[in-house]
Design a protein around this nucleic acid. Structure first.
Length: 807
RNA sequence: GCCGGGGUGGCGAAAUGGUAGACGCAGGGGACUUAAAAUCCCCCGAUCGUAAGGUCAUGAGGGUUCGAGUCCCUCCCUCGGCACCA
């Protein structure tokens, strides 16, 4: 293979420079530098036992190129790396082997660090952090306590998937058709105590502040959809024969005259109160059945509508109509008020339900102000009111405003905004996560562990199995759970045994990189304001919603607390596309198509791997790996090496070579700014092809090429830079500049078209006049032949490009 | 179902509305070599033609334009996200 036949000893060169960078601390970010700052961030990895796969270095190489480019442009760059090291796999491994997750994690981190260094990535290792390090999670706990103090953290009972046989809570993905994925044991919905964070309080800000971010529009759109702001009205319906009020949320208050029934979610608190004795058994049975279903089958849209009548009626506030109240699981307790007014003529779900249970359907919206009767599906458009009494003829928009105001004046409704976003379930019944710094007192109150006692560290446990109750393994460690007064030894209360989810540590790691060792505070404000915000954040699109939304939420909270000075953490975001296996399938162990960077580097070297990953295609795009393809990148580097290896002339290069060089400097520079690394590499290859034709190697050209290629292939870059007589590191050398005057050719090819088809071409001096070009085109035999004597109707001349004769 | 990407040679891809396929891989031919590897040079979308040259071609079909891979409309396929959110 090409790697073994390479021109130079790749591995010796790569080792030499990796050692140098480490020794020299080349990539240290300087907190005191007067240079402009640039903060480049990678989404830090979970250090799995499998080690890096070729997908990781894609994003890392991209940020590495940008970092090195910024250094060469005189910036003070912060480019850190760390570990998202709490998480389930280490705990599952501990369950199987009894090896402590901390040990596994340390080993995996060491392996990841080795692999990342092997790739020549320019990180400031003095700033490395790991979320599972007590010195780190002390501050995760600190942030949580702030949230707790401000009332943004609360406990609630919410239904979770409880498997009695396994004695544990399962995630929705672990439940298939109502039984556990592993073992096939029955799973039930059981309300369990969980810690929640009030992210919904920040919904509006999380939505609005998206506008100012330099993020891919699709990602912003995903976040907007996830937050799901919707404007409408709360409307109160009286319940016949009872003092209760049934409040519903609707985005279409203009359809109130079309309400033919009401629906409560099975979990709605009014269900028991309003159900008549005659309907009690049916309702009870339905509610119980609904509680057994998991969220996935419950929300399966292809399911037929089900429901049951409560026996009670509600009174429509606009016309006094008496409408039956049903219970149905297509209404979710977690959205709006957990109850709806059903308008089957204009809502597809209500329509299907009404058809199933033979309920009336009243048309109240029409395209053109005249009723057309109810069709085969609901008409969900905005239009004009019909069958709505005095409101007939009103356009939807006006009607909404009028009726909302009217309801409000009567005290039976008001304008209302609801969000799809739910509060964040923040606790896990697991061992390997941040302990909550909380103590439950005997009287039921919950108190914070004093700041001076942080961190609350994880105790040693004998077994990593969850406690039988569904509590975490921590619940079984009596010494740890029982909090005693240090002076009297008297029991004060019991520690919270839940742990935080993996998202917690990744919500703020980008801040700790700025001040990683500060023992007294999360971050020094002066350093924070120096480095924030993150100028470029690169990572996988799989984190488009959750991680990025949670981190933005915490950041805004920390802003409110005066800890950070920016409203948003990540100014520019780029998602790298997935790298697929050689078979075009997603890489996975089971498919056996995983490419291991160790093997690639062993054969081709880190530089070739880096160049290939960037050359494969645009960063953001999904693309398949092809080991054969690296050969071309290896050859490219070898050819540069050989070029620099011989005698070098200090004479100025001939004009055509300098032109090519300056065009290349321009293209490579512009492409790095646009993060189009593939075309930058292609341009360098083109330059290389050109200068290889010359018998003389000009220093002027070689040095520029080495500088240009060095962010992509830093080992070759450093080595050749040194051999050309310069001091390391090449990142201290200035990025080459181009002369715009040298980027234009003095001759251009002009294409002659007849009726838009290419017929001839010729070389002319640049900026030849339109008249001259037209004259030349009309002298072309080929053009004349294709005109076939037809009269010329029109001539289009595009200077320096083409002449199109229309005839 | 809804939202968002994307369909260009054998493959990865490139192309401010202006020569479609830059650059690379694979393939073919040649030079060097006892030979192979490496290296260097040439060819390389399809099709008709001895050639000159012509015709077709960017998922399909329409449209705008002197000119469309690029803009507009309809549709198909594919990948990702969300999924009874009232």
């Amino acid at each position: 293979m090409a790697g073994e036949e390479s021109t130079y000893d790749i591995h010796a060169v790569e080792q030499k420079w990796q050692d140098y960078w480490l020794r020299d601390n080349t990539f240290r970010a300087d907190d005191d530098s007067p240079k402009p700052k640039f903060y480049v961030l990678d989404m830090f990895p979970y250090p799995s036992g499998a080690g890096l796969h070729v997908g990781h270095p894609e994003g890392y190489t991209a940020t590495d190129i940008v970092s090195r480019y910024k250094w060469m442009n005189g910036f003070n760059v912060l480019h850190p790396m760390g570990w998202d090291s709490f998480g389930l796999p280490a705990e599952q491994y501990a369950l199987q082997t009894g090896i402590h997750p901390a040990i596994t994690t340390r080993k995996n981190i060491d392996n990841f660090r080795r692999q990342i260094r092997m790739l020549g990535l320019a990180y400031d290792w003095d700033r490395e952090v790991a979320t599972s390090d007590p010195a780190y999670y002390r501050w995760t706990q600190w942030i949580f306590l702030k949230l707790f103090e401000k009332g943004l953290a609360y406990q609630t009972e919410i239904p979770v998937n409880w498997c009695p046989e396994l004695g544990t809570v399962l995630a929705d993905e672990e439940v298939v058709d109502g039984v556990s994925e592993r073992g096939g044991f029955p799973v039930e919905r059981r309300p369990m105590r969980q810690w929640m964070l009030r992210i919904t309080l920040y919904a509006d800000r999380l939505l609005k502040d998206l506008d100012g971010l330099d993020w891919p529009e699709p990602i912003k759109e995903m976040q907007r959809n996830w937050i799901g702001r919707s404007e409408g009205a709360d409307v109160d319906f009286a319940v016949e024969g009872l003092p209760d009020v049934l409040r519903v949320f609707t985005t279409r208050p203009d359809t109130l005259f079309g309400v033919t029934y009401m629906v409560l979610a099975p979990e709605h608190p009014l269900v028991n109160r309003i159900t008549t004795s005659g309907q009690a058994d049916a309702v009870q049975g339905y509610v119980t059945a609904a509680s057994r279903m998991n969220d996935i089958s419950r929300t399966d849209v292809t399911r037929d509508k089900t429901g049951v009548f409560t026996g009670t009626y509600a009174i429509n506030p606009v016309n006094g109509a008496r409408v039956p109240i049903w219970v149905a699981d297509y209404v979710l307790i977690s959205y709006g008020t957990g109850a709806i007014m059903a308008v089957p003529a204009h809502d597809q779900r209500d329509f299907e339900f009404a058809k199933t249970f033979d309920l009336p359907i009243i048309e109240v919206v029409s395209r053109d102000a005249t009723p057309h009767g109810v069709g085969e599906e609901a008409l969900t458009i905005e239009g004009v009111a019909v069958n709505s009494g005095m409101f007939d003829g009103l356009p939807t928009r006006e009607f909404k405003a009028r009726i909302t105001a009217e309801l409000e004046s009567k005290g039976v409704g008001k304008a209302s905004v609801k969000y799809r976003l739910r509060d964040w379930v923040f606790s896990r019944q697991r061992y390997w996560g941040e302990p909550f710094p909380l103590v439950h007192l005997p009287d039921g109150t919950v108190v914070a562990v004093p700041q001076s006692d942080l961190p609350v560290t994880l105790p040693e446990v004998a077994s990593y199995k969850t406690a039988g109750s569904g509590e975490s393994p921590l619940a079984t460690i009596e010494d740890w759970v029982d909090v005693q007064d240090p002076s009297t030894g008297k029991s004060l209360g019991r520690r919270e045994t839940h742990t935080m989810p993996q998202w917690a540590g990744s919500c703020w790691y980008y801040l700790r990189y700025i001040d990683p060792k500060n023992p007294d505070r999360l971050i020094d404000p002066a350093k924070e304001s120096k480095w924030m915000p993150v100028d470029l954040y690169v990572g996988g699109a799989e984190h488009a919603v959750l991680h990025l939304l949670y981190a933005r939420f915490w950041h805004k909270f920390l802003y409110d607390e005066g800890v950070v000075s920016t409203l948003e953490p990540f100014q520019k975001l780029v998602n790298q596309g997935l790298i697929l296996g050689e078979d075009g399938q997603k890489m996975s162990k089971s498919r056996g198509n995983v490419v291991n960077p160790d093997e690639v580097v062993a054969v081709f070297g880190a530089d070739a791997m880096r160049v290939y990953e960037m050359f494969m295609g645009p960063l953001e795009v999904v693309k398949p790996w092809n080991t054969q393809g690296i050969v071309g990148c290896r050859r490219f580097l070898d050819r540069i090496w050989r070029l620099c290896d011989g005698p070098v002339s200090d004479d100025p290069a001939p004009l055509h070579v300098r032109r090519m060089l300056h065009k290349t400097i321009r293209k490579v520079t512009q492409d790095i700014d646009r993060m189009r690394f593939n075309t930058a590499i292609a341009q360098m290859m083109t330059l290389l092809n050109e200068i290889s034709k010359e018998t003389i190697r000009y220093r002027e050209v070689l040095e520029a090429l080495v500088l240009l290629v060095s962010p992509y292939a830093p080992h070759v870059g450093e080595e050749l830079w040194e051999r050309l007589g310069h001091e390391p590191s090449i990142i201290h050398a200035p990025w080459p500049t181009f002369d715009p005057a040298l980027c234009v050719e003095d001759e251009v090819k002009i294409v002659f078209q007849v009726n838009g088809k290419l017929r001839d071409d010729t070389m002319v001096a640049i900026d030849t006049s339109d008249e001259e070009l037209e004259r030349m085109a009309l002298e072309s035999d080929k053009v004349l032949r294709h005109l076939e004597g037809r009269p010329i109707r029109k001539v289009i001349v595009v200077r320096n490009r083409l002449v199109n004769i229309v005839g």
